[in-house]
Design a protein around this nucleic acid. Structure first.
Lengths: 148, 148
DNA sequence: TAATTAATGCAAAAGACTTGCATTTAAAGC
DNA sequence: GCTTTAAATGCAAGTCTTTTGCATTAATTA
């Protein structure tokens, strides 16, 4: 699932969204978006920092990701290993998706399937919650790790 | 959702499971299980250590929880705040469930509803995975926090 | 009751993430 | 383009959760 086609759009989107908020488009922020656009799976701040060697400090990566998340340009995922991972939010049909992670080798597979959204609104209504979202990830043993 | 009724059973279960593995039933382990049995929601290692003041070191809490998890007596949850929380796995109808967490005040509501298990087996089969489980948590704004 | 070895507790470390502060730099004004 | 100014960066140092090494304690087994 390559996102590279969405780069330009995302950068425009970023510019538009930042302009209204007294915020700036900086080299690290652009590079993070560009990198995320090339990635097939969510990646951590540490990996981002490493891949952008030199052009984005680790602290800046954390701060930028938090900011991009708050602007809904990036989504945070949790694969249960004390490390947040981030993915570009793109506006096509694959926007909402989940992951299947191998408990052994940590391979990640993107899952497009999801449950009926009515379940979510039912739950929200039942408990008087609003703006309800969900985090859903699947874990198991991939075919290679079953034999090993 | 009080679990207190399941204590004795869980302890027996623990004893049975440990016996075969050259492992021991110790005071901290018993106390952790007893405490978890009384809790309505998943709690962190730190909270466990605090509530068992004196009788269970924080490190022991971490180690015991990891062990209990590996023996399927305890389940780990992640509410997106860099802190693992644990719940007793009990064998009644409420065994499998999820949570709805307020993004603001962190209130937790237990959710019994879940999607059709066929989805999970379909996903497992499609990607050649086995022993597939899932982590599903809902996040939103509770009624109190909507106004504030 | 003694022997054995798993489990504990302490101290210290590792790892993810955050914060304070001086410096840099994007962007708005001249 | 040049100056201004406040946001963003980078470094150092800190916080917080979780892990590890090692000597000590205590649960099981004989």
């Amino acid at each position: 699932m390559a996102h590279s086609h969405s780069n330009e759009h995302d950068l425009m989107d970023l510019r538009a969204k930042l302009r209204g908020k007294d915020r700036r488009i900086t080299k690290p922020r652009e590079e993070i978006l560009e990198l995320l656009g090339k990635e097939d799976h969510p990646i951590s701040a540490k990996i981002i920092h490493e891949k952008l060697e030199g052009s984005c400090n680790l602290v800046t990566a954390y701060r930028s990701l938090k900011m991009l998340e708050s602007m809904n340009l990036v989504k945070r995922f949790d694969f249960g290993d004390n490390t947040a991972r981030f993915e570009l939010i793109c506006c096509n049909d694959k926007a909402h998706h989940h992951h299947l992670i191998c408990n052994d080798c940590r391979t990640v597979v993107e899952i497009e399937e999801c449950f009926d959204p009515k379940m979510e609104s039912r739950i929200a209504q039942k408990h008087g919650f609003r703006n309800v979202t969900h985090q859903l990830e699947f874990f198991g043993l991939c075919s290679s790790c079953q034999t090993a």
